[in-house]
């Protein structure tokens, strides 16, 4: 498996370890996302789901492990000193530019309009011409139904609207893989639907996505693969039918029972 990576692999992590202040949060997690995969990571809180996602684009730095994105490979943890080096930093920035992230708390830039939020990445990271970026940004905002608000500032928007803008911002980076970190957890119940609708459309058009979520029913409907994380290890993974209809692990069974 390590020898040759098939062309269809979009993102692969191997043997990720991560601990905070002596507490191990990830204990050797390996996960592969093929192109067009929609992977949902589920698990009770504290199971390390978000940490796993944040390790994938190196917002958290794993203690050890390996990361492959689109032909770039990173051996992590071996060269702690090298982390600071310029070359390594550039490599990380390249990788991050390929993995767009949607945060639980939106993290829109409050001093920029909606349109400016969407345009910033392509302009500064991809260095694409401004007119082209603006056209594309407007198209993306139209897709998530936010075009008419494109001159507003984030503070004027509802949570659901903010998250839709954040998704447009992520899409504007034209990413290989989209990472969603509990995209609906900070939303009022009545606003969850509009965001899930957008994510569902993205899944249907074949985007590669990895998503940490508590929305079990949604995970079941859109995912091609579900991963159950428990105490820093992958305890079970497979198709949604397998996991939701015939869970093998007791822990997973308990979690599912508590959800319905």
């Amino acid at each position: 498996m390590t020898a040759s990576i098939p062309q269809t692999t979009a993102l692969q992590v191997e043997n990720l370890y991560k601990s905070f202040a002596g507490i191990e949060v990830l204990k050797g997690v390996s996960l592969t996302a093929e192109k067009h995969d929609v992977i949902s990571i589920i698990g009770s809180s504290g199971s390390g789901k978000s940490t796993l996602l944040r390790c994938m684009n190196l917002l958290e730095f794993p203690d050890s492990g390996r990361l492959r994105v689109h032909g770039e490979e990173l051996e992590l943890g071996t060269n702690r000193r090298g982390v600071r080096s310029r070359r390594f930093q550039r490599q990380i920035e390249r990788i991050r530019a390929r993995l767009a992230m949607v945060f639980q708390s939106f993290n829109l830039w409050s001093h920029m309009t909606v349109l400016e939020n969407v345009m910033l990445g392509p302009c500064l990271v991809h260095r694409r011409p401004r007119d082209e970026v603006e056209d594309q940004a407007k198209k993306l905002l139209a897709r998530v139904g936010m075009l008419e608000k494109c001159q507003m500032y984030p503070d004027c928007l509802s949570g659901g609207q903010k998250q839709r803008v954040a998704i447009a911002r992520a899409l504007a980076m034209d990413p290989e893989v989209m990472l969603f970190d509990e995209p609906t957890s900070a939303l009022d119940p009545e606003l969850v639907g509009e965001v899930l609708l957008v994510i569902r459309e993205l899944a249907e058009e074949g985007r590669t996505m990895i998503m940490v979520t508590h929305e079990m029913r949604f995970a079941r409907e859109v995912s091609s693969k579900v991963v159950y994380l428990h105490q820093g290890r992958i305890e079970e993974q497979g198709s949604p039918e397998q996991l939701f209809n015939a869970p093998q692990s007791d822990n997973l069974r308990r979690l599912l029972a508590s959800q319905y």
């Binding site: 684009n57 917002l59 930093q89 990380i92 920035e93 390249r94 990788i95 991050r96 530019a97 390929r98 993995l99 767009a100 992230m101 945060f103 708390s105 939106f106 993290n107 829109l108 830039w109 409050s110 910033l120 990445g121 500064l124 990271v125 954040a166 911002r169 980076m173």
Partner: peptide, 17 residues
Amino acid sequence: PYGQIEAGVAMGLSRFN
């Protein structure tokens, strides 16, 4: 707010940007 910085980091913005 740290989240706003993180959103930039996640996008691969250089330190300067």
